[in-house]
Design a protein around this nucleic acid. Structure first.
Lengths: 207, 207
DNA sequence: AGTTTATTAGAACAAATGTTCATATCGCAA
DNA sequence: TTGCGATATGAACATTTGTTCTAATAAACT
């Protein structure tokens, strides 16, 4: 298996675009669709990314087939059911499966780029602490368990209660949790900072 | 709605083949691939099945797109596909079916209380005019064609362009369209106020 | 008998599409 | 410097592919 990190930024961007188009439209993009998306003026500019990605085993080898540049690991299509948590129980760390969670919700795997349904869950937002990030009371956020990056909105366990915060760093480079609402304080990291997952999507229904 | 059982045996066979090919290869077959599979000697023999299936709403309308004859996944227990419009074409009033719609998205019927998939569509939001209602650039809003009430967020056709606004009334009780952003003006109703639908939901994916 | 519908065929066209060749720039390493 | 890899352009070519027009046959229906 060739690592993805041997890709250049540009190659990665092309691959992302191809994967995304497959997810959204159900078709792999043509060379010229990729070309226009990146504002390139020659189909050959794209061609070289495609051969590179083919050589690295990331998209299918293709012989003159229209829309044949399909990613090898095709994103799972269809939908799955993930647990919908009203409030994450205290102490939940790794597995949420053993809790009796009656409610589940269906999500489109492709749209939220769900890799593994088992590590993804939904969380109903209460309160207005993330209003500044345009997340409202009653919204449902989709959370994936993966390593958070600075700037990500994360579900964090603080004092046995799960809240949504933006992961940031202070002047010393230490991680802090910021509420996106001036009325709420920025939390300095307790000795233990349990981040349960990263927000990857949001679903809102109007009453 | 036309039922699938109004299909002829041959039309059903073509649809099955198309669906199977999508599942197996990840690509919709070309006209000539279908042709050869059935041992036909003219691409036009296939073409007529395809138009029939398109008219019956079983495969996507397609305009000269290679491998564009994708089946519309229907009735997968609670799911449907609705058109995802980047920008609503001017003059769109009742039927959107005859427009070439490249993108579709899956939605959970129950979650968004979709009565009739045919009267529901998705609209990709551009701009920040609805930031005050916590609708961001890039969000996808689900729009249902129904009578709007005061306070509803509606997709309105203004000067041939579709925008998202909140339906309100001025002091005289006349309908006005309010942008939820102080930097945008409130629109007095032109003589014709075409409201295309009411927002019933929102889907956001984080990059 | 006449009409419609489903099916298939053949030819041809226009557009879409993958591919190749030659060339150029930039940054970086030998 | 030289060379190399990544990136980009432009032109051209050969297929592939969707589409249209005309026509034929057979079965079902009026």
């Amino acid at each position: 298996m060739i690592q993805a990190d041997t890709l250049t930024d540009r190659q990665r961007a092309v691959l992302d675009f191809v994967q995304n188009q497959v997810e959204v439209t159900g078709m792999a993009p043509t060379v010229r669709e990729i070309q226009h998306h990146f504002g390139l003026r020659s189909p050959n500019s794209v061609q070289q990314y495609l051969v590179a990605l083919q050589e690295k085993g990331l998209i299918r080898p293709n012989h003159r087939r229209a829309r044949g540049n399909l990613p090898i690991e095709r994103a799972a299509s269809g939908w799955t059911e993930i647990p919908l948590l009203g409030a994450i129980p205290a102490g939940l760390a790794v597995s949420s499966e053993q809790f009796s969670m009656p409610e589940r919700m269906r999500v489109d795997l492709a749209r939220f780029r769900v890799q593994d349904p088992g590590t993804t869950f939904a969380l109903k937002v209460t309160g207005d602490s993330m209003m500044g990030a345009h997340i409202m009371d009653g919204d449902i956020v989709i959370i994936a368990r993966r390593e958070p990056k600075v700037g990500d909105i994360v579900a964090a366990l603080i004092d046995g209660e799960s809240t949504l915060k933006r992961l940031d760093r202070d002047v010393d480079g230490n991680p802090v949790l910021k509420a996106e609402n001036p009325r709420y304080p920025t939390l300095v990291p307790a000795e233990e900072l349990t981040i349960q997952g990263v927000m990857v999507g949001l679903v809102r229904t109007t009453k």
